[in-house]
Amino acid sequence: MTDFRGDDRGMSPVVAKTLAIGLALLYVGGMTTALLGGVVPAYESRAGGELSERVVATAAGEIERAPPEADGAVEVNQTVTLPENIANSGYSLTLSNGTNTLALVHPDPALETDARLSLAPDIDVQNSTVESGHEFVVSVRGPPGERTLTIEEVE
């Protein structure tokens, strides 16, 4: 039995494997931290910012195109489809009277953006809000001179 006491040759592969496993775990941990801690969130917010700008630009463009160039009373409903989520969370679009602004409201303030609408002077914009996740409808109603424009959710 005493012959085996000083024999530690069998330990060598165990040490080697343990070392390799430890290094691999450290590496994977380091990479994961670097990616998830810095690169991925930064990209997510960059992509989210770009997407929210496009969402607002698309919605604003659709709203600006909705009023028809027709005499007489009109009723126009134009459906617009937009992405459900920006940077993994829902958002809402708010149309406000006065400045004729379409604003995107998002839990992440960095992704909020707005657009001024250029509309014919006789169009009265109604304060209205739609939540993402549904299609929404741009409605223009009324006789010339007092047309109202509002955005509403579809079921």
């Binding site: 990209y43 960059r46 992509a47 770009e50 700008e53 496009r54 607002v56 630009a57 698309t58 604003a60 463009g61 600006e64 160039e69 953006t113 657009a115 001024r116 609408l117 250029s118 014919a120 002077p121 006789d122």
Partner: peptide, 26 residues
Amino acid sequence: ALTAAERPADEQRLATSLSDRLVADD
């Protein structure tokens, strides 16, 4: 890819709608 996808969407919309409104009937 992200840099290539970035474009001034709102600026383009504004330019298009301004040019539309400038030649509108009203």
